[in-house]
């Protein structure tokens, strides 16, 4: 188990370093970051002053290693727009996004897993067809559009839920649904496929032959084994969700990290954008690492690959 964890950890660190380098090099994508920062009306001398002030005159690798060293200590520099430390800006906003992500994945799991189980127990039944329809339609629905429709129907026409903001738990209901439904199809399909496979296996027949009750067979014997791949899928989806929060937060005006990302991108606030790309990536890397370790613990066969 330990060699597996160490090897997997090494991979995670290498991936994190590569991602950090890519997000750092975004700064140089525009050509000259000093000229971009100084503005269109700046003279050559102004640009040169900005270049020295921000240290853009040094070799890129030196700048990268310095940026990384500070980033590891939680210092992402100062926001060009807010003139505040990027780290405190993000820390302030991150909790909203994390609550939203946790609610989103919980919603997806709590709806998709039961649907997948029922669909597998009764293949081709009405529930199975409904689940299939939901998964096909869900994948095709643009999340921002779905959000707008919910706002019009439940936020305004019916007036049941607040259309925007983040001041109470009721504000999180619609964003949770919009963020969560996107992960549902994949989780449901995997649960259904896993349950179908497990239910046809020999040990389920053995369990039934021993006279175990149907509920015991389904939940203790079948679901426990079918759910293993769902764990790692949920971790991957959770990582995607944090990235997807940028769309959902801007639709519902939830002032989380996703909304901050959108604001900073629109304002060319590169230090904030770089930090957010790195942080969202880190969440994904940590989640998938934990999921792989958990999987290897639950299923020793995974440890060899």
């Amino acid at each position: 188990m330990l060699p597996f964890i160490l090897k997997r950890l090494g991979l995670a660190i290498l991936v994190a370093l590569t991602v950090s380098f890519i997000s750092f090099s975004l700064l140089f994508l525009s050509g000259d970051p000093a000229a971009a920062l100084a503005g269109e009306t700046a003279s050559g001398e102004d640009i040169e002053a900005v270049r020295v002030l921000y240290g853009f005159d040094r070799p890129m690798l030196v700048q990268y290693s310095e940026w990384l060293m500070r980033a590891v200590r939680g210092d992402f520099g100062e926001s060009y727009y807010f003139k505040l430390p990027v780290a405190s800006l993000i820390a302030e906003r991150l909790s909203v996004t994390m609550i939203l992500g946790a609610c989103g994945i919980s919603f997806a799991l709590l709806t998709a897993v039961p649907l997948g189980v029922v669909a597998a127990i009764r293949p081709n039944s009405i529930v199975d067809r409904f689940a299939l329809f939901l998964s096909v339609a869900g994948q095709a629905m643009p999340s921002f559009w779905f959000g707008l429709i919910l706002i019009v129907v439940f936020g305004i026409k019916l007036g049941w839920l607040p259309p925007s903001g983040a001041s109470s738990w009721r504000h999180f209901i619609m964003p949770t649904v919009v963020l969560g439904y996107y992960a549902m199809p994949a989780i449901m399909r995997l649960t259904r496929a896993g349950m179908l496979e497990v239910l046809n296996s020999d040990y389920i027949r053995t369990a039934r032959a021993k006279g175990a009750g149907e509920g015991r067979v389904l939940f203790k014997h079948a679901l426990r084994n079918a759910i293993i791949p769902v764990v790692s899928l949920a971790a991957v989806q959770m990582g995607f969700m944090l990235g997807g929060s940028i769309v959902v937060e801007s639709v519902f005006a939830l002032h989380g990290a996703g909304y901050l990302a959108w604001e900073s991108i629109a304002r060319n606030d590169l230090p904030t954008v770089q930090a957010l790309i790195l942080i969202f990536s880190m969440f994904y890397i940590v989640f998938t690492f934990l999921a792989d370790v958990l999987n290897a613990w639950l299923d020793p066969r995974m440890r060899s690959s």
């Binding site: 991602v19 975004l26 525009s30 769309v247 991108i265 994904y284």
Partner: peptide, 23 residues
């Protein structure tokens, strides 16, 4: 496999938005 891992770790919408904003 490593490159696939790197690519999956990067949030698509965020990176796409940032690149489009810059270019």
């Amino acid at each position: 496999t490593f490159l696939i891992n790197v690519r999956l770790a990067m949030p698509v919408v965020l990176v796409a938005l940032a690149v489009v904003a810059i270019l």
